[in-house]
Design a protein around this nucleic acid. Structure first.
Length: 594
RNA sequence: GGCUUCAUAGUUCAAGGGAUAGAACAAAAGUUUCCUAAACUUUAGAUCCAGGUUCGAGUCCUGGUGGAGCUACCA
């Protein structure tokens, strides 16, 4: 039982014995810094059940706790708040239990716990990854790691949108203007090369439209009749018909893109357990549409298209199969979901990391899967995140305002390098070690910057104002970790021993730290429930803030007694462990020096 | 038009219906014979507007204003 559980139990006892009332909910919060005490019981909500003056009730409960609970050594009541003071002994006892636990805060999954499939990334294969994808990847990866840490097995996966007219556009432009360029020959990353031809197509397309308009066609007509577009459409048909040459080119160009993506994923530090390709799954949904039609979940219109009527659920009608029998986005998503659960029989739910512009789509998808009667459909979660906007608004590839993922990673690394060289603290590091460190810090800044924001909220990113390396940032937290490592290197005595709680009198800063440390396991659970890496980021920041204050105010290696010295080193070590663990679920590494 | 969503210091972010709304950056001032100053300590500064529910509202409800998104037989 942790402290709050003990107190909850005892507060109920108190109310029962004083007022003879069974209390259901007991509400605690951390005591605000300006009041004395460690944890606060809020009396107000009890007033509905207990009639009386909140201050008197607080006094009564406080006295009961003081008498019956050994951890409680004092209290005061301010208005409706009972501030409870907890003994040093309790905190030290707690600390002794966790001091050498490298995986503090993490929970090992129980055998019966169902796995969750986390989908993220899921890019189109016609454009390089940009800042928006970075947010998606970091969020998906982190939420997957947080779920794991909270005791839920996870499969990371993605669906690669490798089929459709957009791919054909790149292919066609490459055929026409590519001069047999390859990533090898140009030295360009494959995704960049293919992306360039996608842009090239668009340029040519626009030119042709202008010509047609000059010849007297309306703009809408011209858009439909441009020869290059017609040819792309023809190519798509050839692809669907399995035309050898088209399929071969499609395979080649896709493989370039995949190699490019792999590089970016590697740089970003994200990974996947499995990949699904739309080209392989787009037919899957159809049989379930047929089944749904039989069950009456769907209905057919005169033209042969199949729909789902969701008007009773407050939504509208949604198409699930085209009149010509081909699959739409929804068809494929139905199929993919079912396939994934088939492939992972131990999984009981899924998390989809997709931008909030698709909120409606996922509402509909989940509802349809429920209507189709799948047991796991109630455990689907749309991890809906806000867009990353520039000061000028949305990123637009045509206007060249896209922040490229690879470029951004490189810029961050360069900035880290500049700052680091200026500070000049890396004597003795080899060039390779230095480069590694710059990358770690640059990425740390980028990842933290993105993950500390509530996923649901949109992020405003100003490329002109580079991401900070000071204050509430990744490097600030990494720096604290490095400082602690330095202390551990210098501690030339055996600090690996269990101290007797009676021998220690806690410094105010030490107590504050212990209170913060104690919260970590709950934070992990809460973050998992909320699917929010931001909670971990903000918690870690608060912890580090607290530690730095301690560090500045209290001498660790210069403590008066050997016991204090050992205790403070252990305390520092534990803070370092939490930073490392917290950051690991954010996908951020921590350095030995910086 | 309909639906969804957001609005907090100059700026970027916090705040499970609970106390005097926290940080960081930027601004002003201070701390290095002492464990890494990417740090620490001060100062100044904010809940879009109008109602309502509540002992208590940044948080819940209604209306308004402003921004974003969705409203495709695209994905």
């Amino acid at each position: 039982m942790n402290l709050q559980e003990v107190l909850t139990f005892q507060v109920k006892n108190a109310v029962k014995s004083i007022y003879d009332i069974e209390l259901e909910l007991v509400e605690f919060q951390s005591t605000r810094k300006e009041f004395s005490g460690d944890i606060t019981l809020v009396i107000f909500p009890m007033l509905r059940f207990i009639k009386g003056n909140p201050v008197q009730i607080g006094e009564s409960i406080g006295n009961y706790l003081l008498e019956h609970v050994k951890e409680v050594i004092g209290f005061n009541v301010v208005k409706g708040f009972l501030n409870i003071e907890i003994s040093d002994h309790y905190y030290i006892q707690f600390f002794n239990e966790i001091v050498n636990n490298d995986s503090f805060g993490f929970v090992i999954p129980k055998p019966e716990t169902k796995a969750v499939i986390v989908e993220y990334s899921s890019p189109n294969t016609n454009k390089p990854l940009h800042l928006g994808h970075i947010r998606n990847n970091l969020l998906g990866y982190s939420v997957a790691e947080i779920l794991k840490a909270s005791g839920t097995p996870v499969y990371k996966t993605q669906i690669i949108n490798d089929r459709g007219i957009h791919i054909c556009k790149s292919m066609l432009a490459w055929q026409r203007f590519g001069n047999n360029e390859t990533p090898e020959r140009t030295g360009l990353k494959g995704d960049k090369l293919v992306g360039n031809y996608y842009v090239k197509f668009d340029q040519e397309y626009k030119k042709e439209i202008e010509v047609l308009v000059a010849e007297g066609q309306s703009k809408d007509e011209a858009k439909k009749n441009a020869p290059i577009l017609l040819e792309a459409q023809k190519m798509l048909q050839q692809w669907e018909a399995g035309d050898k040459d088209v399929v071969a080119l499609w395979k080649t160009m896709n493989s370039w893109v995949y190699r490019g993506f792999e590089e970016t994923y590697k740089n970003l530090g994200v990974d996947f357990d499995s990949y699904y390709y739309e080209s392989q799954t787009y037919l899957l949904g159809k049989e379930f549409v047929a089944e749904g039609l039989k069950k009456g979940v769907f209905f057919k219109k005169e033209d042969g298209s199949v729909w789902c009527d969701l008007t009773e659920d407050g939504l509208d009608e949604k198409i699930v199969l085209r009149a010509d029998g081909t699959a739409v986005y929804m068809t494929q998503d139905i199929g993919t979901a079912i396939q994934r659960i088939k492939d992972h029989p131990d999984a009981g739910g899924m998390v989809y990391t997709v931008g909030n512009e698709q909120d409606y789509h996922f509402k509909v998808l989940f509802l349809i899967l429920k209507k189709l009667g799948f047991e796991w459909a109630k455990n689907l979660y749309h991890l809906s995140y806000g867009m990353v906007d520039l000061p000028s608004g949305k990123m637009k590839s045509r206007e060249g305002t896209v922040v490229d993922a690879d470029d951004l990673i490189n810029e961050m690394t360069t900035t880290a390098k500049e700052i680091s060289e200026e500070l000049g603290k890396l004597d003795g590091y080899t060039e390779t070690e230095k480069e590694e460190l710059y990358r770690m810090i640059g990425l740390g800044a980028l990842k933290y910057y993105i993950l500390k924001v509530d996923p649901k909220k949109r992020i405003l990113f100003d490329p002109k104002e580079s991401i900070d390396f000071q204050g509430n940032t990744g490097p600030f937290i990494q720096y604290t970790y490095a400082r602690i490592q330095s202390i551990l290197r210098k501690a030339d005595f055996d600090y690996n021993q269990v101290l007797n709680a009676e021998d220690i009198k806690l410094h105010e800063k030490e107590k504050e730290l212990l209170k913060q440390i104690q919260l970590f396991p709950e934070i992990i659970q809460h973050a998992a429930q909320e699917h929010s890496p931001a909670l971990i980021a903000n918690y870690t920041y608060d912890l580090v803030k607290e530690f730095n204050s301690f560090y500045q105010n209290v001498s660790i290696l210069g403590a008066d007694t050997q016991i204090d010295k050992i205790f403070r080193v252990q305390l520092s070590l534990t803070v370092a462990t939490i930073i490392k663990n917290g950051f690991s679920v954010l996908g951020i590494q921590v350095p030995e020096r910086m």
